[in-house]
Structures are given as C-alpha cells and as structure tokens.
Write a protein that binds this DNA or RNA. Structure first.
Lengths: 207, 207
DNA sequence: ATAAAAGTTTGCAGCGACTGCATGTTGGTC
DNA sequence: GACCAACATGCAGTCGCTGCAAACTTTTAT
C-alpha cells in the first residue's frame, strides 16, 4: 500500500496538506465559516480533488481510524484468556493510546476543533460504527454469551466512553500526565464500579 | 407553551405527521432514498415548512430531547445526598425511561432506523452535547471536584453509554422484559465494575 | 527512448440539504 | 368585521457532495 514511489509520496503530501489546512482554518474560523473550497485553495488543489481524498468535509478533520480499530480488535482476540474483558480491552487499546500520545499537539488541536463543533465527535463515532459491531462480536465470543445479550454492547460502549473521556481530559490539561495515565485511571475507576471520588483510593489502577 | 387552541393543535398535528412520515419512509427505503420533499409531500406541507419544524432532516427522525435532559439534571441535583452518583443518575433517569417504555413501538421503529443509519445515533448525541455539559457541571458540584478533573466527564459518558446500550438491547429483543429492567441491569453491572458474565451473580442490581 | 497502461487531477453539470427574505394565509383578539 | 401575530409558502441562493469524461502525470513494457 505504501510503495513510496513518487506518486505515492505526492498523495501523502496532498492528504497531509488538506488535513492541516482543514484543521487550521476550522480552528481559526469555525466549521461553518470554512468551505471545502477554502480548504482546497489553502492546500492548492481543486475542490473536486478534495473529495478524492475525503468522503466528507468532516473526515478531513477527524481522520480515518478504521485501521486502528481493526488492529485493536485483533489484539483483544489474542489477549491472554486469564484477563478479564476490561483488562483485555485496556491492553488492546494501549498501542493506539501510545500512538496518539506521540501526536499530542495535533490531537490537542483536533480535540479543540471537535469540542467547538460537537457534530465532529458524532461523526467520529459514526465512522467507527462498523468496527464497533465487530468488536462486540469479538467480546461476545470471548465471554461466551450471545452478541445480542446486551453485555458485549455494554462493555464496548462503556470502555469506548472511558477512552473518549480520558482523551478529552488529557487533551485539555496542561499537566505533564500522560494520556496512558488518564486511560489507566479511567479503566481503574470502571473496574472499581465508578465509586464517588470523595475518598481518594490509591489502588485505582486495573493492573 | 401548550395552550391547546386550534392553532396549537394544528402545529402538533403537523409535527406528528412529519415525524411519522419521516420514520415510515426512511424505515421503508433508507435514509438516502428519502428526501425532505418526500417527507413534506407525505405530510402534506411544503418543503419549506418542514424546516420551520425541524432544523435538519435527522431531527425529524430523532426528536428533541433537551427537555428530558433538563428535567433529568434537575432530578439529579435534587436526589438524596446519601446516594452515590451512579445511584442518583439512575434515579434521575427513571422517569425518562418510563416515558420511553410507554412508546415502545415508536422507539422500536426509531431504533431500527437509527441502527440502519448510524449517523442518526451520532446526531442524537450531538444534539444533547450542551445538556451533557450542564450535567457534567452538576456531577462535579455534587461530588465536590472540579468539572475538568475528568471524573464527572467519565461518569456522564459511562452512564450515557449504559443507557444507550440498554435502549438498543431492549428495542431489539422480543422478550417481555421492561426497558427499566435493562437499565437497572446495566447500572448494576457498572456498579459492580463490569465483571465478566461467566459466573452469573444474582446480586447485580444497584438498589 | 517511446508508447501504452494505469492512476490522478480537474472541470462541469446536477441533486439535495438548508437559509434568508418577501409575501400570502389563517387563527386569535377586540 | 378589522386588526395583529403567528404560521405557511415560494423563490433565489449557498454549500456539500457525486458521476462523468477529458486532460494530465507517473509507471511499465517494449
């Protein structure tokens, strides 16, 4: 897929230029005040070309994470059977978390843009709807219940919510705490049954 | 607001006719194969009028639940301080759950439409983004932590995920179990730390 | 080196969602 | 019955997005 010929390098550059222009312009002016034409002009391609790279305007801002989803599901399925489902999901998510951690500044901007324009959050979830279904099937088979029984759906939704919550909190803070740290804290709180934080409990980590 | 004069009754009728037509047509043909013009024609109003009632095509399918959100937040704030946050959230959600339970057939169709067209699920969450923020502030003040600390966000996301999960599971099953039952089960699993369901544990209810 | 093949960019025409504005209708009020 | 406010409608226009075909560029085969 990445044969790094001239042709392929140009495509990567164009894609990156479009994403960068889209994020910058929307961050500056707001989603509605930026047209696809604006973004294309800033990246020096025709508006029609924009849609050769992204199916929607939103996609240029959000990115495509289906590959991450598939890899995560594979790791989940390969996880040690002695782990609980939550532990296995946390383990499976770790490389994705690490990858995001590397791009902190991009993600900070992306998340600023997303919180300013909530429909983007929604768009991101829509795009991962198919992968989510596959994950639910995987969870169901791991614990040996029917996919429609409700439990796999609950587990997928809830852990997804925990990751999103950690992502938002991490992206907005100025503290040097890592994203992985936030994710572990969230999963720890989940595994502990989401106790009220009134009395701080040092043993909050799932591992 | 509901003065039930002739004028107001007509408005309610038009709104109901548009919603019904939208759900039915989209259920039959799929979201992309139904235009606003189709829906308007089926409800016997002009396309322009459609947009006097709904800001987007999606909204006609999803409905407006901001009033529910506000009422739920009010009940949460009024809940007995001895309850944990999850218990208080469950309590606050109960009337909404009961209301949905009354409209089972509409909700089954709505959810069928939503699962066939995932962008609608996303749209529903987008529309409640503002209320969600208010809820986070309420949660933060109840447990006495800063709204940005992460915990209130986690609690709001996770309980939202539990409700959505229960809603989907209930809408798709043919068993006579009530929606409230599904919600209680989901909250019970949450409070128990989402244990693997391998070994059934009879004490799963939060109450 | 050159021509054919394959992949990419672009313009164009067109649909459908959605909005602002101006105008016509209808229900409520005195 | 006359007046006002609310509501419905038509119209013109913007923008997101798509299919199609022509022009162009890189790769491949000769």
């Amino acid at each position: 897929m990445n044969d790094s010929g001239l042709r392929d390098r140009k495509k990567q550059q164009t894609r990156a230029a479009l994403t960068e222009a889209a994020l910058r312009l929307v961050d500056e002016r707001g989603l509605d005040a930026v047209t696809v034409e604006d973004i294309s002009a800033a990246a020096d391609v025709s508006p029609r070309t924009f849609f050769n790279y992204f199916a929607t305007k939103d996609e240029a801002l959000i990115g495509d994470h289906t590959a991450d989803d598939a890899a995560m599901r594979a790791r989940f399925l390969a996880a040690d059977p002695s782990l609980s489902v939550i532990e296995a999901l946390l383990l499976a998510a770790e490389p994705v978390v690490a990858a995001i951690e590397q791009d902190r500044e991009i993600w900070r901007r992306r998340i600023r843009v997303m919180t300013d324009n909530p429909q983007l959050v929604a768009g991101m979830m829509t795009r991962s709807a198919r992968s989510e279904h596959d994950l639910i099937v995987a969870i169901a088979s791991r614990v040996g219940v029917a996919p429609e029984s409700g439990w796999p759906l609950l587990a997928a939704f809830v852990t997804g919510a925990a990751v999103r919550s950690a992502l938002l909190t991490w992206a907005k803070t100025d503290s040097p705490r890592t994203f992985a740290d936030h994710v572990h804290e969230a999963f720890g709180a989940l595994a502990a049954g989401l106790p009220d934080p009134s009395k701080p409990d040092p043993s909050k980590d799932v591992r």
